[in-house]
Design a binder for these strands. Sequence first.
DNA 1: CTTGTCCATGTGGCTCCCAG
DNA 2: CTGGGAGCCACATGGACAAG
Length: 286
Amino acid sequence: MASFDSYKASASRWITFIDSEFYPDYLDEAKVVYGSVLEQFATLVGEVHSSADLLTRISQEPNPSRTQLLRVFRKYVSPDTSVEMLKRKNKIPEIIAEFGTRFRSLETVKQNLLSRPDPDEAMMAVLYEYKSRGQKGYELTEAFFLWFNKTFGDDYKIQGPPRAGRDVMLNEVLPNFESRIPADFLISRPDKTPLVLGFARYDSDRGGAQEDDRTGGNRDKVTEIRKYASEKKVPLKVLFLNDGPGLTLGSMWNDYAALETYGQGDVMVCTLKMLDSRLTREWLES
DNA sequence: CTTGTCCATGTGGCTCCCAG
DNA sequence: CTGGGAGCCACATGGACAAG
């Protein structure tokens, strides 16, 4: 079995690109999605008497438009009030009391609104940039589930959310497993013997800068799972499904290769394109 | 139906270190 | 002295889901 490390020389051929939209192509769609929200925001601004008033009015709107109006509110009136604060409807009076003095005055907001082109494509683009956050990871796991069921669906079972949803909690699926480690999927025999615990991640950029301790974190998972497997004498292995151009950056490839070595045969790191040659029945049963 | 939580990836400031 | 790689941290939106 070729190691993950041995693919490094031709790394770019082994990663999968999940398409993103180009600028300015998405402006038309952004207009469809956000045009009416911006109009509604302008209307509300015209109806209220203060910035605090505006927030109160917005908080009375039903979702999904409330959430979008709040985003616009943050941009024009109060960049310091985080989403998490504004998400909770009944906290709004408290927010006004604590942060209201930092709100931009309604007069200034009105002037700024008037100074913008109508429709305001810049604002729409800003809002749209966040629209598909998180989707690529779901596409990766979904592609894996499809591949797995096509290839092994008759003989093995895979469980876990194909896209969004609650992770597989290891302490819930493995008898007497003590840590509360979340996994993305679990592969088992028809007789329910667990064979593989899977962790998936798509890295677009910067190799997962938001969670850089995860090389260490992954190591800890491996240590714990292997300890369990040897104590309970079960053929449990770990699969890291990692993909995306971020893998080719910096030390990422080496880090994952080292993780595989650390696993001494019980750990495999794979991109989607390696599945056919590496994720074999032999490995599942090893 | 509404709300809060969990999970996903993206963005960028900051510090440390080292090569040139 | 400068610039960039790398790791650390904080914070962003949105879909799915569970609970009320």
